[in-house]
Design a protein around this nucleic acid. Structure first.
Lengths: 367, 367
DNA sequence: TTGTAGGCGTTATCAA
DNA sequence: TTGATAACGCCTACAA
């Protein structure tokens, strides 16, 4: 194997430093960064063999293989993502867009998601690239740019809405992606192809919340939700309705408002005035508002019968019962789906609409 | 200029597709990805000229320049980050570690920071790579790995503590970074070199909070803080002490506990038992706990005189006065410092200890 | 002002 | 089983 003997045309390529060149040598610390070449040379094998040890170990004979591995370990070699990317057209990078405005309380679930996505991606050998973009158009522009320049392998989308054009664009351009949230608008639309997504069973969440209150003796359970038209909001409303009907109650105490603490106060007041003795809320902001107003009105009976949604830190701290979305599980599934799609192009979408993640209600008592 | 005429040794490099090769051609959509080469060829100029138009436009004559620009625009050319990175050793990527555990309420300020950092980096032509790592050792290992494989240009550190070894490691390895938080432990330590950081004047925050309460007629103002030993906590304590002394009061109503809602309840109860008629808190969790307990005890007088810290969404919603850290400003400065350091190695640290960002107190009334 | 040459570190193909 | 060769797209130095 001719240890150390430079064979062939003089020195191996990349080693002739025509004295006086020394381009951008980064503050020559004595030890140059190890590369496939340097390892190959040290061992007297070809750099292709070293590459094979990394990518198709079975094609390399045992003695060689362990020798190479030893050297790699010894010098702390790390393959260069740039070079690999240049060659393979893959970056092992996943894109995640930061919401332009975190409205705080509810936004916290997105942050939880981001944490979980990062962790899972890491386990799979991928990393997350986060970017900012205001509005749908800007977001699409960002996809285009990041895909072209940074070769992102795929994107993780959140809060998909009716008439969302991001998914269409990505489909058209054959870029892998997964959505957190069902394709509300497009489902059943024969003209559009399907795509990967995961979702949480909001309906099951409000259903469980409603039953929990019923168990506590509530009869006139009210619902505080978002205006009709948002997929998740309507879904959660359905859960309330079916649970109520199933329990033999009439789901007629309903107040649908934009999400905010203040609106929660107002809606709660109206609902109790109409006779509600308990409240199911589609968010913790609304629940928090409801509790505050109930307290102000001296309705401690109702205060103890409010259930929020998302199980935000505030709910935990203040002691509000809340529906907890299995975000970590969702993140794992999103990443796995996306990576599968990336590594097996051609495969058909793996999501099954019946396969929603089930949230769990935490029962608490306000402090 | 011989449009379209291939001059020199046959076709330009990279264009000979020895029929039957067609390696990984990604689903040949008819239009190949534009490159410097393809643009140069289309225009009959050399690829170097195109590169120059991008990187040193002044070296290219006008007619050529605009022709090139037109073509770039027309075909939607984007330089490949991988190729550029391979060549320049720079990725235009900044690293940000996700906290392993977001303890929720207070963690929200980190999320706000991340949003702001992302936005600012984007404006500067950089992107953020987020990664997960549990514990100091793992974080350092992540630096090493990301630096070696992904060529991250620098790192944005948060929550630096006493005896933090991350900064030491990064300094040793000459990797650019900035910290959110003063180098508490190492400041004045002659043995360690200095580094870039920014910080917020916590002392000014509690000072302002204390004065705000005094304006409202409070005399026996209590302080709810963290146990001695944390830089930020001690800093905030100092603000309270100096303000009180300056106002002619004695800063003797002090309770220092670990940060949590529950501890906030306990501390508040002890302090009012000792005679406090107002409370300055170093976090919104503590403030929230304080308010809850005051309400339970019927001390509405004190309830209206609680100031929190961080101005989290909950504080805004519930109506707690709170000290708002100028996070967006901090983020801008962090990114700018880091990028400066990256693009001008050798320059000395730019942070000036006297140059802290000043928070502002928002006055609110609980709902 | 523009063009030529060479190489950054990796992988794919094919020949030995 | 291993090695030689040729790109991937870009940038820097130098020559014309």
């Amino acid at each position: 194997m001719g240890q150390e003997s430079q064979h062939g045309h003089g020195t191996a390529s990349g080693e002739q430093v025509p004295a006086g060149r020394r381009v951008n040598a980064p503050a020559d610390t004595g030890t140059a960064t190890p590369t496939l070449n340097s390892i190959a040379r040290a061992l007297g094998v070809s750099r292709q063999t070293v590459s094979n040890v990394l990518n198709s170990p079975e094609r390399v004979a045992e003695p060689t293989r362990s020798a190479v591995r030893g050297e790699i370990e010894r010098v702390g070699y790390r393959p260069s993502a740039a070079a690999r990317q240049l060659r393979t057209r893959r970056s092992r990078l996943l894109g995640f867009r930061m919401q332009d405005t975190t409205d705080g309380i509810n936004g916290s679930i997105l942050d939880r998601l981001l944490h979980a996505l990062t962790a899972r991606a890491h386990e799979c050998g991928y990393a997350l690239l986060v970017f900012a973009a205001d509005g749908e158009a800007a977001e699409i522009a960002a996809y285009e740019d990041l895909r072209a320049t940074n070769a992102l392998d795929g994107f993780l989308l959140t809060s998909t809405n009716h008439g969302d054009r991001r998914a269409d664009w990505l489909l058209e351009h054959d870029i892998p992606f997964v959505c957190f949230g069902r394709p509300w608008g497009r489902i059943d639309a024969a003209t559009t192809r399907d795509h990967d997504w995961i979702d949480i069973d909001g309906r099951a969440g409000t259903d469980a919340a409603t039953r929990l209150l019923a168990e506590d003796g509530a009869r006139r359970i009210g619902f505080m939700g978002w205006p009709e038209g948002s997929g998740a909001g309507d879904d959660r409303f359905d859960g309330y309705v079916t649970a109520m009907e199933d329990l033999g109650h009439v789901p007629d105490l309903v107040d649908r408002v934009e999400d905010s603490f203040e609106n929660g106060q107002g809606a709660a007041e109206r609902l109790v005035a109409a006779g509600a003795d308990a409240l199911v809320c589609v968010s913790d902001s609304l629940a928090l508002g409801a509790i505050a107003r109930m307290r102000a009105l001296g309705r401690h009976d109702v205060m103890d019968r409010v259930v929020g949604f998302d199980d935000t830190p505030i709910a935990r701290a203040v002691g509000i019962s809340s529906v907890d979305q299995p975000v970590e599980q969702a993140a794992r599934r999103m990443v796995d789906l996306l990576i599968h799609r990336i590594e097996h192009p051609g495969a058909s979408p793996a999501s099954d609409p019946t396969d929603l993640l089930t949230p769990v209600v935490h029962r608490r008592r306000a402090t």
